[in-house]
C-alpha cells in the first residue's frame, strides 16, 4: 500500500493526481473541481487548510495566511469575500497568547476587507497529535458584479495576455530562508488579501480568468491552465518582475522561483484589447506596482508552457513533482 508523502501536499503533479483519486470516491462531484465553488445564484464558497513552519515569518503569520488564502480563492473568481468560518485544531499545551496573536492578525485582514467572522470550530488535541496549530478557513461571498459566464480557466482564449501581479515566489522563499537559516534582509512573504487589487479588474469585459499562485507557484498555475484548456502558454523570462531576495534564496538553495509559493500574487488572463488597462489598474494599487505582462495564450504547443529565456532559448515549464528540496547539485 502506498503512503502519502509531503510531495502529495506540495501542490504539484502528485497533489493533482491525489485529488483525482479522492474525487473518484464520490458519486457526485463538481466537474471542474476548482478551489472555489460558485452556486447558480452567484454565491461562492471556498475552504482551505493551513499549516506552516515557522508560524511567524517576515510579512505574516499563520492566522493572516489562513484568512488571506481563503479570501483570495474567492477574489480570483470575482467573488467579494464577506463571511468567514474558522476551524482551529491546537495541540495541548499551545500558548494561548500566541493563538490570539494569530487571530488578531486574521482579524486585521477581515477588518480591512469588511469580512465578518460568522462561525467555526475549536478543538484541542493531545500533545503530538498535531504540530502546534492547524487552521482551516471557509470563506463565503457573492459575485460582484454578477456575470453570465463565470471567470475561470474555461474562458481562456488564444491570444489572451497573461499578467503577473508581482514578483513570484516571495512566500516560498521567505519560508525556505527561515527553515534553512538564511538571513535575507528585505525579503518578506507576499501574504496579502487580493480583493482590493483585483476588484477594479472585474469591470473589464475582456477579463478571462485569475488565479492566486499558492503552493506550486506561478509555474504550476500556468501548467494547470494550459492543460485544462488544451492550449499552449508562452511566457518570456525577462518580463517577469523579480525580487532580489527571492533570487538570492533560489540561487543558494538551487530552487526555481517559478515553483516557489506565493500567497498574495495572482496570474490574470485578459483579452489583448483590455491588457493595457488591466495593467494600469493593477499598477495603481500598492500590491501591484510591479505587475507585468509575462506572456500569452497560444494555439501552438497545446498543453505545454514554453518559456523564452533571457538568452533567447526556449524551454518547457512543467509542474514540479513532489516536495521542493534544496539541492547541492
Amino acid at each position: 500500500m502506498s503512503r502519502l508523502t509531503l510531495g502529495h501536499g506540495s501542490g504539484g503533479r502528485l497533489t493533482q493526481q491525489l485529488v483525482h483519486r479522492i474525487a473518484g470516491c464520490f458519486p457526485l462531484s463538481g466537474h471542474d473541481m476548482e478551489d472555489c465553488a460558485i452556486a447558480p445564484d452567484g454565491s461562492g464558497a471556498t475552504m482551505d487548510g493551513f499549516t506552516v513552519t515557522p508560524r511567524f515569518f517576515s510579512g505574516g503569520n499563520l492566522g493572516k495566511l489562513a484568512v488571506c488564502g481563503a479570501a483570495n480563492d474567492l477574489a480570483v473568481r470575482g467573488i467579494r469575500p464577506e463571511q468567514l468560518l474558522l476551524s482551529v485544531i491546537a495541540e495541548e499545551g499551545f500558548d494561548e497568547e500566541e493563538l490570539l496573536e494569530h487571530f488578531r492578525s486574521a482579524g486585521a485582514v477581515c477588518g480591512a476587507l469588511e469580512m465578518r467572522l460568522v462561525g467555526g470550530d475549536t478543538k484541542v488535541v493531545p500533545r503530538g497529535a498535531v504540530d502546534g496549530l492547524f487552521l482551516s478557513a471557509c470563506a463565503l461571498g457573492r459575485e460582484e458584479p454578477r456575470r453570465e459566464e463565470q471567470l475561470g480557466a474555461a474562458r481562456l482564449q488564444p491570444g489572451d495576455t497573461l499578467l503577473l501581479t508581482g514578483p513570484a515566489g516571495r512566500h516560498g522563499a521567505t519560508i525556505a530562508a527561515a527553515r534553512y537559516e538564511l538571513n535575507v534582509p528585505g525579503l518578506a512573504s507576499d501574504c496579502a488579501a487580493l480583493w482590493p487589487l483585483l476588484a477594479p479588474l472585474l469591470s473589464l469585459p475582456g477579463l478571462r480568468a485569475m488565479r492566486d499562485c499558492t503552493r506550486g507557484g506561478v509555474g504550476t498555475v500556468l501548467c494547470e491552465w494550459a492543460e485544462s484548456r488544451h492550449l499552449g502558454i508562452s511566457v518570456e523570462e525577462r518580463t517577469f518582475p523579480a525580487d532580489p531576495g527571492v533570487v538570492s534564496v533560489a540561487d543558494l538553495l538551487g530552487l526555481d522561483p517559478l515553483y516557489l509559493a506565493c500567497e498574495g500574487t495572482a496570474v490574470v488572463a485578459v483579452a489583448p484589447g483590455d491588457a493595457a488597462e488591466a495593467l494600469r489598474l493593477l499598477r495603481s494599487h500598492p500590491l501591484g506596482t510591479e505587475a507585468a505582462a509575462i506572456g500569452i495564450v497560444t494555439e501552438n504547443h497545446p498543453n505545454l508552457v514554453s518559456l523564452t529565456t533571457h538568452i533567447g532559448g526556449r524551454r518547457l515549464v512543467d509542474m514540479p513533482v513532489g516536495e521542493l528540496l534544496p539541492r547541492i547539485c
Partner: peptide, 9 residues
C-alpha cells in the same frame, strides 16, 4: 543548460 533553454539554440 535546461533552465536557459540552451538546447533549443
Amino acid at each position: 543548460i535546461f533552465r536557459n533553454g540552451i538546447r533549443s539554440l
